[in-house]
Amino acid sequence: MKPLARYAAIHGYVELSRSLGLDPVALIRAAGLDPAGLSAQDRWVPAASVADLLERSAADSGHEDFGLRLAERRRFANLGPLSMVIREEPDVRSALRTMTRYEHMFNESLHTRLTEHNDIATLRLSLDLGGPGESRQAIELAVGVLHGLMRGFLGPTWQPLEVRFAHPAPLDRRTHHRILGPHVDFDQDFNGILVYTTDLDAPNAMADPQLRTYAQQIVNAPRATPNTTTSERVRDLIELLLPTGRCSVDQIARSLGVDRRTIHRRLAAEGETFTSLVDSTRADLAEHMVASRRHALTEIADLLAFSSPGNFSRWFRTRFGHSPSQWRAAHPADRVRAAPDARPPSAPPTTEPG
């Protein structure tokens, strides 16, 4: 597969396009994307198609700053599950390192590298679209989003030392200076942002140390590598979609931009099936969620998309040899890592199945 990106990468696209007099639906279709897919932010699509959409939009609107304008509309939550992990890192440096390590979870084409030398930190960004194609707008979107993240950590008055772009300058630089600050240079040898290393030492005001272990569970380290297999992609989507009730092979195929037969074929080549992945993902989540005591057992049954608490209990007994309540009693919560959940910890308790 060519590199993929989530639809969340173009959050706010429809509103921005319309504000500039464009027809977003026509442009989305012209780029080979599905307009209806914009409502599913976690759906995967070819990154090259996203880049093409941005280039078409910039050309048709006459705004060379289209990608940067779109970056203004991005929110921290658009990073998906990764946003939870980044939010819980203790300082800006560790947050950025976590983001670069797991960035393939929201955009497989994006590569970010952090280096430090002589009190200056450099964040270099590059895109691999899997083939030839213009990427100016996608690069400016990525740099703008990174700049916005830094401001989120360091405050709205923070300014970088310099922002660099490898492409030529636009005719009008006002948007670039308004969003990125006064020190923006073009025709440079890389795309990225330069900051003082002391900025990276700043504590992350959003961090909650008690939630850090829970957040890191979402990006299971053994699976977090750029060379992601189809099985790993499917499993990540299963974790995201189970609590929504939309975890089907058809939905996941749409998210990956292929048909269901392609999913079945590629999983078979890796010795897996969709059913086996759903079952193993449920088992991993259930084992930790039952023992952690964060949720009532009836709630866990719902989070794992079982039709009833009774069905969950029977499945759990078959899988683990004990009922959920027996497993919970035998496994103290402090010995089990907290698992990803889809509802706030303050959700009201309900009657627990056996």
Rank of each mutant, 00 (worst) to 15 (best):
A9Q: 11
H11F: 13
V14Q: 04
L20V: 03
V25R: 00
A30C: 01
A31M: 01
G37F: 01
S39F: 10
R43N: 11
A48K: 06
A48Q: 07
D52S: 09
H63L: 00
D65H: 04
F66M: 00
L70Y: 04
R74P: 02
S83F: 00
D91C: 13
L96E: 08
L96V: 13
T100E: 11
E103Q: 12
F106L: 05
N107K: 02
D119T: 12
S126N: 05
Q137R: 01
A138P: 00
R151L: 04
R151Y: 05
G155E: 06
T157A: 15
W158S: 06
P160Q: 05
A166H: 07
L171M: 08
R173W: 00
R178C: 04
H183W: 12
G192M: 01
I193G: 03
I193F: 02
L194A: 13
V195A: 13
Y196A: 14
T198F: 07
P203M: 09
N204S: 02
Q210Y: 10
A215M: 12
Q217H: 12
A221Q: 14
A224G: 15
V234P: 06
L240R: 12
P243T: 08
R246T: 15
C247K: 08
D250L: 15
Q251D: 14
L256G: 08
T262G: 05
R266H: 10
A268D: 11
F274D: 08
V290G: 08
A291L: 08
S292R: 06
H295M: 15
L297A: 07
S313R: 15
R319P: 03
R319F: 06
Q326E: 15
R328T: 03
A329M: 11
R335I: 07
P340N: 03
D341G: 15
P349F: 02
T350S: 15
